Computed example of a mutant assay.
Amino acid sequence: MVVANPAAGTYTREMSEAVVRRIAGVGAAVELAVTERPGHAHELASAVGEPGGPALVVSIGGDGTAHDLMAGLCESAPAEQRVPLLVLPSGTGNSFYREIWSDRPWQDALESALSRPRVRRIDLARVAETDGLALLGASSGLAAQTLVTARTVSDTGRARYEAALARAIEAFRPYPGRVSVDGEVVHAGPTVAVGVGGGRHRAGRFTLLPHSVLDDGLLDVCVAGTALPLPALLRLSRDGSHVGGPGIVYARGRRVVVERTDGEALLFEYDGDLVTGARDRYTLDVDPHALPVITP
C-alpha cells in the first residue's frame, strides 16, 4: 500500500503516480491511498495487520506522515508481525528519509526496496506521560519553542521554519532543567536545548545526535547548557560538531527523564508535535527493535 499525503511540503501527484507504476511494474499488487485529513495515515496503517493486508507500506510525505504511519503500524500488530515501512521524501524536512537513505534520490531508494529489500528493525522512544511513540525523537528548549513560534508565521514549507527559528531565537530564554539517564543526573542547571532519540537529524538541517544508532537498543541524549553561545550552537549542530563543545553533555541509556525544576510547565515536543498539558517532566523509554523499515 502506498500512502500519499498531498498536504506534505514538496508533494506532487506525479511522484505518487510514478511510485505506483514502478511497483506495479514488478508484478506486485498496489493500492494508492491519498490522505484526506490529519490522522488519516494513522488510521490507514492501523488496519494493515488485518488478514489479506499489504506486505509493505510506502510513505510519500514528510516526517509527520512517517510518524503517523509508524504509530498506526505499531497498533496494527505485535512487533514481530508488523508490516515494514518504506519512507520516500515528499515533505519539507525529510529527516527520517535522510536518516535511512542519506542524499540518495528517491528513485534509487525505491529501486533498492523492490530489487533487494533489506528489513531493519529500529528502536522507538515511548513517552510515558502520553504513551505516545517517537520515530525521530523528542526535544525541549529552543526546538520546542520554535514550534510554538511557527504558529504565528504565515510562510509555508522551509521558509516557515526559518522564520519561526529566527523569531524564537530573539525571544528564547534558557530554563532551569535537569536531565537523567538511567537514573543518573547528567545535567542540572540552565538549559538551552535537550534532544532525545532516535534519529541523528531533526528539522531537515540539524544533526543533533550524530552518534545515534537506530537499532542499538539505546536512546541518545544531547543537552546544551549556556556555555556555548546560541549562534555557535546552531552553526555547529548542522554537522554534529557541537558535541564535545563547552556546556554540551552527550549520553546514552534506556530511560531518559527531562525536567524543568522551577515548577513551571516544560515545553516539550516529539516528532514535531507539541505536547499539551502543564507537566514539568517527561520520561522516555526505548522500545527496542519495534518498527521494521526498508533500508539499503
Rank of each mutant, 00 (worst) to 15 (best):
H201K: 05
L267M: 12
Y11W: 14
V192I: 14
T207E: 13
V186I: 15
A128V: 14
G253I: 08
A144W: 02
D280A: 14
E184P: 00
V148I: 10
G72L: 11
H211W: 05
D68A: 15
L56Y: 00
T276C: 02
G72N: 09
D215M: 10
E162T: 12
N94F: 03
T295W: 14
V196K: 01
L85P: 11
P89Y: 02
P6I: 07
E264R: 14
T261W: 00
G62M: 07
V181C: 15
A47I: 00
E111I: 04
G53E: 06
G177D: 04
L133P: 01
L73R: 03
P6V: 12
A203P: 00
R255M: 01
I100F: 12
V293E: 08
G132W: 13
E17K: 03
T130V: 14
A29R: 15
P78K: 05
V249I: 13
V58Q: 10
G9L: 01
G52V: 07
P105C: 04
L136Y: 01
A143V: 05
E17V: 02
P231Y: 09
S140C: 12
R21L: 08
A188F: 10
T283A: 11
M1E: 13
E111L: 10
V196G: 02
P176K: 11
R254H: 05
L219M: 12
R160E: 06
I169Q: 11
W106A: 05
L147M: 13
R13I: 00
D285I: 00
L135S: 08
G245N: 10
S76M: 07
G9P: 04
R98A: 06
A193G: 01
S241H: 12
L44C: 05
A138M: 09
G27H: 11
G253M: 04
F268K: 00
P210V: 01
P6M: 07
E43C: 02
V87T: 14
R178K: 12
T12Q: 03
H289T: 02
P296M: 08
S112P: 00
L228Y: 15
R205S: 12
A45V: 08
D155L: 12
V48A: 06
Y250T: 11
R260L: 06
R158G: 00
I100T: 13
A134R: 03
A278I: 04
V20N: 07
F172M: 02
R252E: 07
D262V: 07
P51S: 14
A232L: 13
Y282I: 03
V26S: 13
G72R: 06
R121V: 04
V257W: 03
L136T: 05
S241T: 15
R98N: 04
P84E: 07
D271R: 02
G157L: 09
N5S: 11
G132K: 10
R98I: 01
P105E: 07
H289N: 06
D108L: 04
V257T: 12
P38Q: 05
D123G: 09
E269D: 06
S237F: 14
V181N: 05
V148F: 07
V213L: 13
G39D: 10
G199Y: 06
L208G: 08
S115E: 15
R158C: 00
T65H: 01
G277Y: 08
L218S: 06
G245A: 15
F172A: 01
Y282C: 00
V275C: 15
I60E: 08
